[in-house]
């Protein structure tokens, strides 16, 4: 059950961004010194991002450290299983470590931020000595939350972490399950991070970026869709074809969309309708909305036209 954490507008000392404005970073673009949050709403969303986090760490020769709450994986193999990774190139061989948060609790069962931070500092130092590029930390700290006191403790930890990691010795992704906490607390946790992490793009070319989104389920499409890039859009749409329920395509950063690209969206809408659900196009530039209506495609089964976006 979610519990009340903070009142509206309540300011927590140490907040990095009191207004909650953060830059998004793709998980594959994380660099040492980054301290990012992941607010996830489904196991699928977390698994997808965690998978890229682990693969990115192995690729960059980082030491990977997972802070495990009670429900979390007990060891590296279980962690890979959670990421839906069956094997990793070169094997684990000490490159992935799982540490239980229970080791940093006081006798009363409270998390001790300073003790955890000391340990992380040492772990980062050891990683460098062992030849790793950096220490790469992830964990679902929100899983350890019990009450408002824990929220404040966790925010202290986040503040310490932000200061510690800005030196560039380590990077961290702090996961919070939005199903387990109230919006005000989530805002506070999010505000304690300079960046929020999202899945690596399904498509990343010079002209087109397509990112899987989870809340709501769908895609964010940015850039240009023309004859050269239609196949990328088709592939990206296939990746959400199996989504149960409605899909939203966020299109406010689409600079150009040709008729062939529009047709792909209409074909996708009809496929949605066949599954008794819809696709909503949100943030379309007004002229694209006008073209859809001109052709008569605004009546396409399964299609919903959301708010348009100003030029």
């Amino acid at each position: 059950m979610p519990f009340h954490c903070l009142g509206p507008g309540e300011i927590i000392p140490g907040m990095v961004h009191a207004n909650g404005v953060r830059r998004r970073v793709h998980v594959g673009d994380l660099q040492p010194g980054d301290h990012a949050c992941l607010l996830f709403g489904s196991d699928e969303e977390r698994a997808s991002i965690l998978r890229d986090f682990v693969l990115g760490g192995l690729d960059a020769e980082d030491k990977i450290l997972y802070l495990s709450a009670e429900e979390d994986p007990p060891g590296p193999a279980a962690l890979l299983d959670r990421c839906r990774l069956t094997s990793v190139p070169g094997g684990l061989a000490g490159r992935v470590e799982v540490v239980r948060l229970a080791e940093f609790l006081s006798r009363r069962g409270d998390l001790e931020p300073a003790a955890l931070m000391r340990w992380l500092r040492g772990a980062a130092q050891r990683s460098r000595e062992e030849g790793y590029r950096a220490l790469r930390v992830a964990g679902d700290l929100g899983a350890a939350l019990r009450d408002e006191h824990d929220v404040r403790t966790l925010l202290r930890y986040e503040t310490l972490l932000a200061e510690e990691f800005s030196a560039g010795q380590a990077l961290a992704v702090c996961q919070y399950d939005i199903r387990r906490c109230e919006p005000a607390a989530l805002d506070a946790f999010a505000s304690a991070h300079a960046r929020s992490v999202e899945a690596d793009p399904l498509v990343r070319t010079a002209d087109l970026v397509v990112v899987r989104t989870y809340r709501p389920q769908g895609l964010r499409i940015e850039g240009v869709i023309d004859t050269d890039s239609q196949r990328h859009l088709r592939d990206a749409l296939r990746s959400v074809a199996a989504v149960r329920g409605d899909v939203r395509l966020e299109m406010s950063r689409v600079e150009f969309l040709d008729l062939g690209g529009l047709r792909l969206l209409m074909t996708f809408a009809r496929a949605r309708a066949a599954r008794h659900c819809t696709v909503e196009l949100v943030g379309l530039l007004p002229h694209l909305s006008q073209v859809i209506t001109l052709i008569g495609w605004d009546r396409t089964p399964g299609l919903r036209l959301g708010a348009v976006h100003a030029y």
Binding site: T227, F256, P286, Q290, V291
Partner: peptide, 22 residues
């Protein structure tokens, strides 16, 4: 041209060119 009329003009030219390029 600006805004919607600019975008529609660009789209018209690109679609006509696309017919020949195809």
């Amino acid at each position: 041209l600006t805004g919607e009329r600019l975008e529609l003009a660009v789209l018209a030219v690109c679609e006509a060119a696309g017919y020949l390029l195809a």
